[in-house]
Every structure is written in structure tokens, then in C-alpha cells.
Write a protein that binds this DNA or RNA. Sequence first.
DNA 1: GTCCATGCAAACCTTTTGCACTATA
DNA 2: TATAGTGCAAAAGGTTTGCATGGAC
Lengths: 166, 166
Amino acid sequence: MIRSPDPSLFVRLFGRYLRENGLPVTPQREAIARTVFGSDDHLSVEEIVDLVRTGGISAGKATVYRTLELLVKSELVAEHDFGEGFKRYEHRLSSEPNHDHLICLNCARVVEFKNPELDSVEKSLAKAHGFYITKHRLEMYGLCLECVKSGTEIDQDGITCPIDTV
Amino acid sequence: MIRSPDPSLFVRLFGRYLRENGLPVTPQREAIARTVFGSDDHLSVEEIVDLVRTGGISAGKATVYRTLELLVKSELVAEHDFGEGFKRYEHRLSSEPNHDHLICLNCARVVEFKNPELDSVEKSLAKAHGFYITKHRLEMYGLCLECVKSGTEIDQDGITCPIDTV
DNA sequence: GTCCATGCAAACCTTTTGCACTATA
DNA sequence: TATAGTGCAAAAGGTTTGCATGGAC
């Protein structure tokens, strides 16, 4: 993965978005933007609150939620739900703006990938079902190499044989 | 889409799962199973509670949640999160056990599709990233034909031009 | 009699909202 | 100075849990 450029560039970009929409640029908003743009992880709100605090600026949880909403609206940040019961956020300014995710069910590691075949899948689906498709979400779940190596297994306790039902 | 077979077959299947795991088969569990297996929709918990009640049997919300957990564990039912803030459930006994979803952002219509290309995508990803992939989730979001025809538009209010930042 | 399910209400967790106060432009 | 942001606490909404009751074996 290519390292992202200087975060401050994107903080300015967000500032421009705010100004364009007649919204004030505040220290809290800048600090939250700096935190999200400065990390290549998929951050939870809790993590963002802590990181902002570590950066020396205090921002309440409500402000973080409200600012994340703006960041998502500006399309500079993507919101994800990996089924953990809460959302995660990542900036969209890396080398691959439209990527998907591999998620390890054991250690929660997230690996990003880009697969060009999906574009053709999307096109053929749009045609076949008369849908105008604007976005997709693809997540592959399983075990990463390390967890496989360490002998982790995924518990499978579904029905033994669905055929034998009579 | 091929019509699902008689739901009672799957209710029995669930009963077998329960017995195999030393769990009692109760009227509530049967009623909930009958409801889920008897519908080809993607049902919310609220809808399931109402449908069960309509069927003449009373089951508390907690019981519905607990039974759905068992149904998902048995792998007879799939749990979905389409980003509505709550989960939906559908039985996995239709003609296509492993399908994905097209979701209309305007009217919330859900269309199922099966795309064989995804299997090869999954295989190549597993190889490329050393992942052992057990399941995936693919959702395509956009507008269905009806909503496009009726002139519905999706509001796009992101930044105007990300390049012009200096 | 033991084990477990049920149902109600309370608890929980993330996210949203109301409101008094403060800062921005 | 007008407008909007902030932070706290409360509310909201879906889901989970504790506990007393009740049924099945």
C-alpha cells in the first residue's frame, strides 16, 4: 500500500469544504480531521476520541460524531460497518479510492484490496436487473495467514446434513 | 426465483438441530421458525414478532431474538445488515443458498442475485493475501428501475474537486 | 427434581438530540 | 452581532441480559 500524502493537505481540503458550505472551521473540526487523515487504520469513534485527546485538543463525543458526519458527506472519509456493533471510519485519500476489505474473524485485521473484475460484475448486474448502481460493499471474511498458522479455527456448528430431513 | 419448498420441512429440520444439541423444541421456537421459513422476504425482528402473533402464537421479543440466534447458528437462516440500523433475517433454503443483494436506496427494495464470477474473485484474493476465506458479503446499492423512472435522484454533495487543494 | 425456555423489564451500547453556553466569521 | 459549534447529559433505538415463573422429561 502506498503511503498517504501529508495529512495537513486534506485538513485544508476539509476546511475548504466547510467554507464552501458556509460552516465555520473550528479547532475541534481540524483536530478530528487531522486525526482521521493522519491514520491509515479503520478507526472507531472511541479510538478517534482518544487520538484527538492525545493530540492535545479536547473534543466531546457528540462533536466527533457530528464532524464525522460532515467528513462522510464531503466524501473525504468512508464509513464502514464490519458487523462489530459500531462503525469505523477511514479517509478516502489513499492510493486506491475504491477498494474493498478482507477481514480476519479472529484478530480483526483488515486488509484492503482492489479487484478490477468487480467493475464488470457491477455493470452486468446493473444491466440484468435494471438497477442504477452508485456504490457497493464487498467484505470477505475468514482467517488471515497468521491466525491460520497459529491453529485458529472457526467454529462450525450448523446442521450436519440438510438433505436428510424426512 | 424458484419458489421455496414447504416450510414445514425446514421447521422439522430446525427441530432436528435443536434435538441434536439437547435443546427443547417449543411452540414458540416452532412458530418463529415457521414464520421465517414461510417468508421469502428479508424480515426485521419487528416484522417477525408481528407475523408470529398473526399466526396465533405469542412470543416475546427476547424469545424471538434468542431463537433467531439459534437459527443463524444452525445455518438455516442468514442475518443481514443493510445499514438501516437494525438487522434482517432470511432463510437460506431457497434455490440459491449463496446469493448477494441489490438494494434500492430510495424504496428499500431488495433483489437477490447470484454471480459465479465472485467465486474466482474470492479464490484469487485468498491466494494473493494468504487468507482463508469462509464467507463474503456483497451489497450493491443504487436505484431500482421504478425509482429511476419516477425521477428519484441521489443527493451528491461531496467536495467539488479534490485536486485543487493548494 | 432438574434443566431449560419464556417473558417482562432493566440494562447495555452506540448514536442522536436538546439546551445552555461559547466561539466563529 | 448573528449564526453556528461545543459539550454535557438525556434520549433514542436496537439488542442483550437478569430473574422469577412455568413446562417438559
